[in-house]
Design a protein around this nucleic acid. Sequence first.
DNA 1: GCCGTTTTCGGCCCGACTGTTTTCAGTCG
Length: 574
Amino acid sequence: MDNREIEARLNEIARLLELKGENPFKVRAYQNGARVVASMQDDVATLVKEGALKGVKGIGKGLQEKLEELVETGELTYLDELREGVPPGLFDVLEVPGLGPKKVKALWDTLDVVDLQGLRRVCESGEVAKLKGFGAKTQENIVKGIAALERIGGRRLRGDALEPAATLRALLEQVPGVERVQVGGSLRRGRETVKDVDLLVASRDPEPVMAAVRDFAQVGEVIGSGGTKTSVRLKSGLQVDVRVVEPESFACALAYFTGSKEFNVALRGLALDKGYSLNEYHLNPLDGSEPPAIDSEEALFALLGLAYVPPELRENTGEVEAAQRGALPPLLEPEDVQGILHVHTRWSDGADTVEDLVARAAELGYGYIGISDHSRAAHYANGIGPEELLQQADEVAAARAAHPEIRVLHGIECDILGDGSLDLPDDCLASLDFVIASVHSELNMDADAMTARLVKAVSHPQVDVLGHPTNRKLPKREPSSFDWEPVLDAAAKHGVAIEVNGHPRRLDCDWVHIRRVIKRGVKLCVNPDAHSVDALDDARRFAVTEARRGWATAADVLNTLPADAFVAALGSPG
DNA sequence: GCCGTTTTCGGCCCGACTGTTTTCAGTCG
């Protein structure tokens, strides 16, 4: 049982407790436990077996017992009991915007609503509007909510939210009276997917801002609009929330609306320790005196005894304590990335030529680029074999001659076959500048077999980078299951780097595992996995963000080395 | 259910907005 499954079980308990009207703090304890498990770098199953869960913050006696039972038996009696008599379709009902546990329970108790279909039926018949605490408006909103849910189905890719966020931000900056506009929320924290976009505006005149948001060309529907807050759904389905605060409150508000919720709770706790009460407007002294003027997040954190915590780290997974000790690492920056590997051309499934990609990479200021098309086992991607590689070498040579300002490396993204062997002969691999080894097939093999497969591939003398290790695809495809420790051991032994794939749908390995890779002393390689010139900068745009979330510094990343040192590092077996 | 240099009980972050209400509950972030 891996951490993801355990997280899902704990979250299910939390939702069931909510539906049963249990103590909300108990609910939170389970939600918190799920979050702790999800962000844990070590396997909870292993920790349980070693009895090492004791002292993990957020996992007390109760959860510890539950985790033990879950890991040892694969079952959880408590969860089974809670599930008793609760229709699974209610979880879908809970997803409807505007419906929380209280309302769902009321619908279930009084109208026998057990799924979305039933909910739609009682809305159409007008029964919902007659319920105590409900009304015509609520009923109408539920119908709209069901439609929205069907249209968008949950979270959006970070890559799909960046553009509308930037466009609206630029628009709001032009509104008279606006002093500052900043993106907050999970988009600012660099989460791989986002539920909505949060924009924070500093102005003494909120109404024109509210009007500008409602009139934004991309808006499909205004969900709500008050004096200082407007929520809209764009035509794309993406929800956007805009808040206006007085300029004096901007720093506190920015911290507040950047979150995460857990980080905010920790900040408030620190504030209380220091004799303040923190809200989204001010840091209010408990003695009732005037709140101090705070003009930046840095100043706010300093008053709380913290070094500046970059947004990507604000998940309350150790960064608060590190910031208190002044022990936060200097995070990787986009400009630290000196060169990129993992770029596809028309030789396999890319849209552009070697020349196109090299020219663009040089424009973007990279010192080296590694061409790496798919190998022949990737039929669907028009993978290439030894003969094509020879021909491609001529094109690479031509690009080198045309672009002396950038080092052009010739490599391959070689498929890892089902048994862990590589898709091309050793002499062919040895003739290339570098080899990325990736799994593209048989993603669902059992964890032991996948572990052996990856260990064998990483141990191959020609392999330099393990590409997108888990093969997840956002938002739907789950990562493959395998045991990380043996794979990282092999990577350490053979000097193989683990890729942080910058494709917005992959972002693989993810931040939780990045922390683990770093802890093991294995290098990362931040790559774009570009299939066109437009995606060439995705290493800086997306992979760096993911790496920052995983506490990576420039020293942890292989391709922060300048070209000569990088090539030398490729050649040496660690 | 978790947590603890005021602790083993009694807290657990806090405000905006909506819709249903005549002062507030529920939801959301």
